[in-house]
């Protein structure tokens, strides 16, 4: 019971502090590099038709050099399923230490692999029913994930140390909350994988407006 009380209060305290932190919201001017320019003649043999790729917005995050980030977003295992012969989502950000699974939801084999440093992995060929172990991404960096069988399939997994990140909506709008006050660098990875950055000052209980563009 005492343990339960401790956990409860800890969470409460965290929530309190979160509520006291500042936010940043704004807009990222998106560029338009996705989806890939697939030639009209590209017709891989698939059991079912290839579906459209998810819209791929930008990822926005705030970071500060030398800061020890709290592991706020690692507890929940994430899933990047392959469905309709696409990674869904096609672009995703995770905090370091987050376990991620790549379940196959199609009726065919997929073969997920990457040579991105430092996450060289190759899941081999697997089907829908195969049980997969989650991969824990504990080093920051951009992981470019492909399916060896379906060359159009690609996923960009951005592993960040900071827990303060968000995906923009399709028009580029975003909001990141719960950031302790202070001066930060705010960065965004555009659909073209190019990065833009700016400086931002986060104040208690306030929402700072930012516009990021190239």
């Amino acid at each position: 019971m005492r343990l339960f009380s401790l956990i409860y209060f800890s969470i409460h305290a965290l929530c309190q502090s979160a509520f006291a932190d500042g936010s940043v919201s704004g807009i990222v001017v998106l560029d338009s590099q996705r989806p890939p320019d697939v030639p009209a003649g590209y017709r891989p043999l698939t059991v079912k038709p290839i579906q459209a790729e998810d819209s791929a917005p930008a990822i926005v995050w705030v970071e500060k050099k030398g800061m020890a980030y709290p592991k706020l977003r690692t507890s929940k295992a994430l899933s990047i399923p392959q469905r309709g012969y696409q990674f869904r989502p096609a672009v995703l950000a995770v905090q370091t230490g987050t376990p991620v699974t790549f379940p196959n939801m199609d009726d065919e084999f997929h073969h997920v692999c990457t040579y991105s440093k430092p996450y060289l992995f190759d899941l081999g060929q697997y089907t829908k029913d195969q049980k997969l172990e989650a991969l824990v991404f504990d080093k920051p960096g951009l992981v470019k994930i492909y399916c060896e069988i379906h060359k159009h399939m690609r996923c960009r997994l951005l592993v960040l140390e900071t827990p303060w990140f968000a995906m923009t909506d399709t028009s580029g709008g975003f909001k990141i909350t719960g950031i302790p006050p202070g001066e930060y660098e705010i960065k965004a990875m555009l659909p073209s994988e190019k990065q833009v950055k700016s400086r931002v000052i986060i104040s208690d209980g306030k929402t700072t407006q930012v516009k990021l563009s190239r």
Partner: peptide, 12 residues
């Protein structure tokens, strides 16, 4: 080859 593409892309 997707694999070779991925490897070269990542300067593996």
């Amino acid at each position: 080859s997707v694999r070779l593409f991925a490897a070269l892309e990542a300067s593996y």
